[in-house]
Nucleic acid binder design. Sequence first.
RNA 1: GGGCCCAUAGCUUAGCCUGGUUGGAGCGCCCGGCUGAUAACCGGGAGGUCAGGAGUCCAAAUCUCCUUGGGCCCA
Length: 1093
Amino acid sequence: MVHIAPGHGPEDFELGMEFGIEAFCPVDENGKFSQEAGEKFAGMNARKSNADIVQYLRTKGLIFYDHTLEHRYGHCWRCDSPIIYRTTSQWFLKITQIKELMLEEIDKVRWTPDWAGSSREYDWAVNARDWCISRQRYWGIPLPVWKCQCGEMKVIGSVAELKGADGFRDGMELHRPWIDAVTLKCEKCSGRMKRVPDVLDVWFDSGVSSWAQLGFPGSRKELDRWWPAKWITEAHDQTRGWFYSQLAAGCIGFERAPYESVLMHGWILDPQGQPMSKSRGNVIEPAEVIGEHGADALRFYMMKANAPWEDIAFQHEGVKNARRTLNVFWNVCNFATTYMSIDHFDPASVEFAALQSSLRVEDRWLISRSERLKNEVAKHIESFELHKACRALEEFILEDLSRWYVRLIRDRMWREEGDMDKIAAYRVLHDSLMSLSKLMAPFCPHITEEVYQSLDGSKGSIHMQDWPAPDLTKADDRLEGSMSLVKEIVEIVTRERQSRGVKLRWPLKRLAIKAKTRETLDSLRSLEAVLSSQANIKSVEFVNPDEDWKDMILNVIPNPMAIGKVYRQWSSKIAILLKSRPACQIKESIEKGEYSLGIEGQMIKIEPNMVSFTTSLPPDVTSVPFSEGEVYVDFQMTPDIEAEGFARDLIRRIQQMRKDMDLDVEEFITAKVRASAKLIEFFKVWRDHIMKETRAKDITFTHEPGGESVVNWEVEGEEIEVGVTSLHTKESVGQFSVIPGLSRNGALGLVEAGYKSPADLRSLPEEKIAEIKGVSKTDARKITHYVHKTGLGAELSCPECGSLIKEGSETCPSCGKSLVAKGGSMPRDKLIPFLLRVPRMNRVKAEMLYDAGFDSIEKLEAASKDEIRQVKGIGAKTAEKIIAYVHAGGFKNPVKCEKCGASIPPDALTCQSCGVEAPSEIVEEGEVEEEAEVITAEDYKLEPSFTYLIKEDKAERSYGFFVKALAEGLSGFCVTRNYPLKIKAKHNIGDTPVIWLSNVGKENTLRPKDLEKLSVSLEQFITAAEPGKGSIVLLDGLEYLITNNNFLTVLRFVQSLRDQIAIKNAILLMALNPSTLEPHELNLLEKEVDVTM
RNA sequence: GGGCCCAUAGCUUAGCCUGGUUGGAGCGCCCGGCUGAUAACCGGGAGGUCAGGAGUCCAAAUCUCCUUGGGCCCA
């Protein structure tokens, strides 16, 4: 049995047509049954009467089966009420007639994604029915069909055709209701033709939009130029919408599709993946997102989130993330422009060709990456894979620029102006940012415009620039490949550091790289600088593919079976001795044919079958495989490394304090540091560096560090107390601002050179001023002019702050001090520093002078020698010196530092740029350090067969013992790090042989790495000693041996040496500075000696 | 009821067309680093039955079919 209602649905209607069943439609426009439904139901709501109808049929006995079926039913999209289909008379476009053409055209169009055309649109067109274009509405384009009562119809094609019609006026409104008043005369029956009241389906408007917007058919001009459209884009709901209506209209009007390619994009769904709608209440307002994260961030997120044709479940996090990427981009640009503008860098003034020789590998690498990016982005945009374009951009910004290139060039940014190395980096970075901005411009129009304007902007808007064309000849696969290996290795080192708890600030001793191929090794070699700087490694070694790393430790394994067979009772002793000797020495000797050991006075020969050898990693070395081989990371700590690590840590803490004190980056400071003696030694080595990095004019090491800010830090278990005081140079810079036209750099240069006010410059000729760093020639001229020519108060300076003041001024314009009492007293602590610069002067004398009334420079200048002599505590000679100093202008003129040449103001005790003491005799009350009681040679008797470890900074005591032993008739042997002639001169050791540990390679020197040779020499000396006459060995330079080898190797050497000493009744003295060893190392060493003192 | 698309870590996703080392990222989480890009930045770790099921194949996240769930367009 079939249910069919040809009057109520298209399928049923078509089936009815096919089988000749009438389209019976007994429902009126209000959804009520009409008279046709019969008297009983007429006027009833068609949907609500279902139960009545069933009941009626049942009473008539016409019901066979009564059941409820669940099925989908069409509802109004707007009010959601069920719809009733009615058959009515409508106007149609006969699509079925052009279906074949449409299918062909769909095939010709380029669809993105492919299935949007080949599957979706095609499927829709195949099933397309004739297009009903009439609507029974009021608003809309009136259907241009006029109909006469006689049945005659006329379709109007243009306004011109309406001319002369009744009710028509030129320029009249052509919509309802006015158009309905226009009537035509029927050409057939002379009756009035009236317009059909329908309007057109709105999709018909959309369908003709491609040419309607070009003014066609009014004019062909624009149509010929622009039509068909190159590209259109809409979401996937437009398969039957705009894509279709345009296609149908185009095929009817022009027999072709009005577009060449289509991008069918997705929807933005809510975070749960549901479409946004007002009724659901899940709409996210773009304006709010833009307000929070910015328009570019929203755009960039939506572009990169997924393919354009896929729906996006909108995520706030995603926008936030995009914003972070853009922020990094912004930071990089900011970083670049900050430095570039400081140096007034103008890319146009630098010929790229001229930079070729200054380019570093990392520069070439970035160029290569940039060119590849251009290529990639263009490719992705052309295939509409905008997400891929954006991801490539993001990757470049984060990985290549921010995480790598900027890090690599940071150091270069602080070079002096005009440094080619820096300019090369500027240029490469600038070019790269320019093309990056252009590539990003379509996605992030605002930020890129801003960046472009700050980078150049000379050519108007970024959006008017040419698209950057890639130059793949500058792309270098090999370089990019080896750079990514370097990155990989840096990551390995970072990871290993982390697992061992070694901070990046602490340098590592070395890294060895063994590569699978020589090519890889060579290309890595060219990036050595990058590698060592980024991984903070002191030295990098390269190991050829077919070789072992030379520092792999050779271990000797005694074969007890073979040894036991020959030397039964000594077998275990031999094994122990063998293990305590350097394995390489054993191996070498055995390979030469013979190796012997001395045991209990016997020489024992070791045969090759008695030992075997293995290699193992040196202590503190980790080996990690990487994609092209293996790396060995050496974590051994040496005093050098420790010193550098602590120095860097100190720098870091001082920087933190500067930051906490809100100091300007250009401000100078002085620092005072309290720390353990060991650390102070370290800091002294790095003093200059620490001062440079922290912009400190002075660093002193004291027990009570005071200052504006004092902080106790703990670094690697060590306590460090740091006091930082700002020098307030910013204020001093202000002093120079009275000079008209002086540049900021110039003012800063003057301050840095130690000048406090313009008055300080009075005695300097213009050429000298121009020599001051940062002061340009123009600056110098302005300064000279101001100081000498302005006349106004040129000779006066404020006694309080030293700045120039006009004659007649009652107060100082800089510090506000009253100037009425001219030549009046200066504060004690202001004048004392001036005085202390006088030769023979000390604090006590200075104070006495001050107390005696010489309390200003003027008074001192005016005083005679005799007057000064009157002061208690000042002798004739001192008075003489003071007068001489005054006459030489010592209180007025700065002097040149003997070391660095910088100018030292007359009241400064040390040179502010290099820290050297000012060139005059400064006598300060020094603290006398108490010395702990120590055992010295005078009251101690050394025992034969003993090994002594003598802990001391300098080997004084050790030499004391040694010299005493020599005097007692022992034959001596000295191994030292010190130059032998010095040793001989300093200590009375006569002809005693001295071996110098050094790499110079002269006679009587030994390379510190050559422990074997040292061991042999010592063995020879001990065994060669005359019977009955004792022998003594002084080993001074253990630290040096340890730094050049590693601790365990040296320890083994000591063990072996000690055995020899014991056997031969000799004495061994080892001098050592205990702070150069780790505590556990010291323990190990102490265990190997008989006496520590 | 029909056509098309989608499903991978807590979340957002790459990889699928053209099957093949150990399924990559980002966010979040946990742990570190850095501090002259700093209302930033960098590294490491944990976290996966590739929706479920069947098939093809030496081999399946990937190809085929089915099921389930979601989206779009229609009916």
